[in-house]
Nucleic acid binder design. Structure first.
Lengths: 158, 158
DNA sequence: GGAACCTTCACCCGAAAGTATGAAAATTGC
DNA sequence: GCAATTTTCATACTTTCGGGTGAAGGTTCC
C-alpha cells in the first residue's frame, strides 16, 4: 500500500548507521595503530636491553593472538543481534525493513501467529497485519513462509 | 492415529554430533600445532639466513593475528545459537518423519502452499493436509511456521 | 512546513491453513 | 500371508492469513 505506487528514489534514512560504521572503522584503525606502536616500543626495549629473541617473539605472538581473538569476537557478535530489533536492514531493492517490521519478522520466524504477536507486543491484530503486509511487499513475497525463506537468505533472521 | 502408539526402537543418530565435536577439537589442536611449527621453522630460517628482525616479527604478528581472528570468529559463532536452553531438546518424541513427510516439509520450507505442494507432487490437497498434520504431530507443533523452526533446529531442513 | 515514511488501528472478504474423523490402497517386515 | 505402516484421499468445520482500502498521529529530513 505504501510501497506499490512510489518509485522510491532514495532512502536517506540510514545515515546514522553509516556514521556508526565509519566510527567503527576508525576505532579499529586506531586499535591497530596502538598495537603496532606497542610492537615498536617492545622492539626498542628489545634492542636496548638485549632481551631474548624467544621472549620477544612470544610476546608479539601472544599480543596479536589476543588482538585477533578480540576482533574476531567483535565481528562474530555483530552477526547475531538478539532481543532488540537492531538497525534497519538493507535489501536488494532500495527498500529496508523498519525496526518494528524486523521485530515482527523475528516473532514470525519463531512460529507465532499474528494474534500472538499482537499480544506479545501489546498491539492490535490489525496493526500486526499491516506490518506483515509491509514486510511481504518489501520482501517481494505474499506468504509468511516465503518471507521466512527470504529473510533467512538475507540473514535477517537466523 | 499412526503416531501415538509406537515406541520406535532404533534411533542411533546423535552420536554423530559428538564425534564431530571431537573432530573439531582435534582439528583446532592440529591447527595450533601447525602454527607453532611454522613459527619455529621461521625462527630457524631467521637464524640461519639472518633475515631482518622486522620481517620476522611482522610475519609472526600477522600469522597470529589471523589465527586469533579465525578463533574469535569460531567462538563467536558458537556462542550465539544457545541463548535458549536448547541442550537436550533434540527429540520431541522418538518419532521419525517418513520420506514423504520430509519431502513435504522441505517444500513447506521453500514457502509453498499446500495446494502448490499438491500440484508439484501430483497429489490431492487433502493428502498434503494429512502429511502436514502428521508432521505437526510428530514435531509437536500446531503450525507450519513452528514446524519450520523446529525442523531447522533438528537440521531436517537447512 | 511539507514530503516521505513509520506506527498504529479499523473493516471487510476470500483464500489458505489447520482440526477431526474416517478409510481404502500400497508398502514393508517378519 | 499377515501385521504394521505409509501413502493416499475424502468430508466438514473453524481458525488464521492475505489483500484491499482508509486514516490519524508521529518522526525525520530538506
Amino acid at each position: 500500500m505504501l510501497l506499490t505506487k512510489k518509485p522510491q528514489v532514495k532512502t536517506t534514512r540510514n545515515s546514522k548507521s553509516k556514521k556508526e560504521f565509519y566510527k567503527y572503522i576508525i576505532f579499529m584503525g586506531l586499535l591497530l595503530a596502538c598495537a603496532i606502536a606497542l610492537l615498536k616500543s617492545f622492539e626498542y626495549y628489545y634492542f636496548s636491553y638485549k632481551l631474548r629473541t624467544d621472549v620477544y617473539i612470544g610476546l608479539t605472538a601472544f599480543l596479536f593472538l589476543c588482538l585477533g581473538i578480540f576482533l574476531g569476537l567483535k565481528v562474530g557478535k555483530k552477526k547475531n543481534p538478539d532481543e532488540k530489533p537492531s538497525l534497519p536492514v538493507k535489501l536488494p531493492l532500495n527498500l529496508e525493513l523498519s525496526t518494528r517490521e524486523i521485530e515482527v519478522l523475528k516473532l514470525i520466524s519463531e512460529g507465532l501467529t499474528n494474534q500472538e504477536i499482537a499480544d506479545k507486543l501489546y498491539l492490535s491484530l490489525n496493526t500486526i497485519k499491516s506490518h506483515t503486509n509491509s514486510i511481504y511487499i518489501k520482501l517481494g513475497v505474499n506468504r509468511r513462509t516465503q518471507a521466512l525463506e527470504k529473510a533467512r537468505k538475507l540473514q535477517i533472521v537466523p
